[in-house]
C-alpha cells in the first residue's frame, strides 16, 4: 500500500500533469488511507497548483494548460470537500472580482480567480463587461475586503478609475483593498487612479494580496 507521502505527491503530480481522472482517483485513495481531507487539499492539490503557477510564471505553461490543471484540481477538490470539517474557510478573505464594462475578455481574470481560490480566498466572480457600480454593490453585500478589477483593453481602463471614485464618493474607500491588473494596466496607472495593488499576473496577484492583507489587518 502507498504511504501518505506517495499519495500526496501523486495528487500534486496529477494536477500538474492535467490528469482529471487520476486526481479524482488519488483523492479517493487519500481518504481510504485515512489522510485528513484538509491535508490532501493543502499538501496535494494546492501544492500542485503552486507548481502550475510557477510554470506559468516561467512561461512553461500558458492559459490552455493552466485551465486543464485547474480542472484536475477541482475534480480532486469535489471528492475531498464533503469530508472537510464544516467550519473550515469561515475566516477566508472575500474577493469580488470582475472585468470592467466595455471589455468581454475574461481570461486573465479567470486565471486570477483560479489561483485565489487555490490559495483559500472566497471569490465572487462578477464575470465580464461589469458596470462599475456593480463591483461596489456586490462587495458591500457579501462583506468583501478586496475588489479586483481587470481589463485587457486600453479602451476600458477608465472604468477602473470610476469604481475607485465611486468608493470615495460613498465614503467607504478605506474598507476595501482595490487590486487592478490586465494587459494594458501599468503600475503607474494603478498609482494614478489610487489602486492599492497592481497585479502583473495571477501568481503575483495572490502573493502580493496575501502579503498586503497581512499588513492591512494588523494596521
Amino acid at each position: 500500500m502507498k504511504n501518505k507521502e506517495d499519495i500526496l505527491l501523486e495528487l500534486a503530480r496529477a494536477v500538474v500533469d492535467m490528469e482529471e481522472d487520476t486526481c479524482r482517483r488519488s483523492a479517493r485513495e487519500s481518504l481510504g488511507a485515512g489522510i485528513e481531507a484538509a491535508e490532501a487539499i493543502n499538501g496535494g492539490l494546492v501544492k500542485g497548483m503552486m507548481v502550475v503557477g510557477d510554470k506559468y510564471e516561467r512561461e512553461e505553461y500558458f492559459i490552455p494548460e493552466v485551465l486543464l490543471c485547474s480542472d484536475a484540481m477541482l475534480a480532486g477538490l469535489a471528492v475531498l470537500q464533503p469530508h472537510l470539517p464544516v467550519d473550515r474557510g469561515g475566516t477566508a478573505a472575500k474577493v469580488v472580482l470582475g472585468v470592467v464594462r466595455g471589455d468581454t475578455h475574461d481570461i486573465g481574470k479567470s486565471l486570477v480567480k483560479i489561483m485565489l481560490e487555490a490559495a483559500g480566498f472566497e471569490v465572487y466572480d462578477l464575470g465580464r463587461d461589469v458596470p462599475p457600480a456593480d463591483f461596489v454593490t456586490k462587495a458591500l453585500e457579501v462583506g468583501a475586503s478586496v475588489i479586483g478589477l481587470s481589463t485587457l483593453m486600453s479602451t476600458t481602463m477608465d472604468g477602473m478609475r470610476t469604481v475607485i471614485e465611486d468608493l470615495e464618493a460613498r465614503g467607504i474607500r478605506d474598507r476595501f483593498l482595490v487590486m487592478v491588473g490586465g494587459g494594458p494596466v501599468s503600475p503607474a496607472f494603478a498609482r494614478e487612479i489610487g489602486a492599492d495593488l497592481y497585479a502583473p499576473d495571477a501568481n503575483s496577484a495572490v502573493r502580493n494580496l496575501t502579503a498586503l492583507l497581512e499588513v492591512w489587518s494588523c494596521a
Binding site: M18, P64, E65, L67, L68, D71, D106, I107, S110
Partner: peptide, 10 residues
C-alpha cells in the same frame, strides 16, 4: 474562450 482553450489540449 475558456471552453475553446481547453479543446486545444483535450
Amino acid at each position: 474562450p475558456l471552453v475553446f482553450f481547453r479543446l486545444l489540449r483535450k
